[in-house]
Simulated scan of single mutants.
Amino acid sequence: MSDALDLQKSDALTADLVRKPLHEQVQERILSHIILGTWAEGYVLPPETELAKQFGVSYGTIRRAMAALTASGVIMRRRKTGTVVTGRTPHHSMSQFYKYYRLHTIEGRLASSRTVMVDACHRNATQDEAEKLELPARAPVVYMHRLRWVDDRPVMIDRVTLPLSLAPDFPVTIEEMPTLIYKWLLEHHGLRLAAIREKLVARLASPEDLKYFDLPLDTPRALLDIEEVSYDSNNRPLVAMRHAALTDDHCYINEIR
């Protein structure tokens, strides 16, 4: 079956377009395919007339969506080829959050990490979590506690919370928990990351932190705390995270375009 026919049958592209102006919703559907890699760099999109049929919208709506994506550099028009995915990072580097966490070496190289889950469960939100996620008191949430390892040693502690109301089918066991949370939310529920608010604080590691990092309890170590709350395109809180990273060999780089 051709890519065009696959696209026509895709749930992501045939979902009811009811929340926003049609051209913005179409734009988000197209962007989702690019972020997830379904339409990778160099992919040639179907003609606009064909896209209009597949989305069930007017030609003018498709033209507006494509014009916005072209202006942001996500796609480009090539003579004799058509409209092509450029591979440029769309919308303030948000696509980076779907692929990896932005931990770098002191020299500035991206650190390749692996995730080890420590704990995972469905439970009631704490007061702090409810405030950050704008939830009622004791609302049900998904909670994850995990470590990030680089070069066979832990360098970051993650604590992650998301409202169960946004994803009632989110896995509950450690074995099933997705490593790439934003990618999972986009693929399973069409929830696209639109903004992230971060707060960075330096502090000394607690005895519990030192235990997870497998470090001596009697030696002070500096940590970088990164508290973040992410939001979807409707400015609704998606996920609250708190990261605690060792600063001896790694740093945090945030690039906004």
Rank of each mutant, 00 (worst) to 15 (best):
M156V: 01
L31S: 13
D248S: 09
S93N: 12
A125G: 13
L17F: 12
A120G: 13
S93F: 14
Y98Q: 04
T49I: 07
I253D: 00
D119H: 14
D11T: 03
A195S: 14
I181N: 15
R221A: 04
N254S: 11
R88D: 03
L31R: 01
R138P: 09
D151M: 03
A52H: 00
G190K: 13
H250V: 11
N254D: 15
K99T: 01
D11A: 12
K183D: 14
A139Q: 05
T81P: 02
T49F: 07
D169N: 10
W149E: 14
P47N: 07
L162N: 05
L180N: 15
Q8L: 14
A202N: 12
F55N: 04
D225I: 05
D249T: 10
C121G: 13
R221H: 05
A4L: 08
A125C: 02
T89G: 12
P237C: 04
L164S: 11
M241T: 00
T49E: 15
R236P: 03
E176G: 02
T105N: 07
L223E: 06
H104M: 05
N254A: 12
L5Q: 09
D6N: 07
I35Q: 03
S58R: 08
L36Y: 00
L5A: 10
L110H: 02
L166C: 03
R109N: 07
R64D: 04
T89Y: 14
Y98E: 06
W39D: 11
I226Q: 08
S233H: 11
E187K: 04
L31N: 14
L103M: 08
T219C: 12
R64H: 15
M144R: 09
P178Q: 04
K183T: 13
I226V: 06
T86K: 10
E134T: 07
R138N: 03
E227D: 15
V118A: 06
D152E: 07
Q25W: 03
Y43P: 02
A67H: 10
R102L: 12
S206L: 01
A240R: 10
A71L: 10
T105V: 04
R64M: 12
R123F: 00
I174Y: 00
P216G: 02
A125T: 11
P171K: 01
R192A: 08
V155A: 06
A245N: 01
V118H: 01
R102C: 13
H23I: 05
L185Y: 03
E175L: 14
H122A: 13
I106N: 01
A15E: 09
L217P: 00
N124C: 05
L103I: 02
T83P: 10
V84D: 12
S72D: 02
E131N: 10
Q8T: 13
S10H: 00
D152T: 07
R242L: 11
L162T: 01
L45N: 05
T161C: 13
A202K: 04
A139C: 04
K20F: 13
M66G: 13
A40D: 05
M156G: 06
H122N: 10
I30Q: 03
W39Q: 00
I226H: 07
L31W: 01
R29F: 11
A4P: 00
A130S: 12
D218Q: 06
S113G: 08
R197L: 14
E208V: 10
A125H: 05
A40F: 13
D209Y: 02
E228P: 01
A240G: 05
D209L: 09
S165V: 11
V116W: 09
L103E: 08
K132S: 15
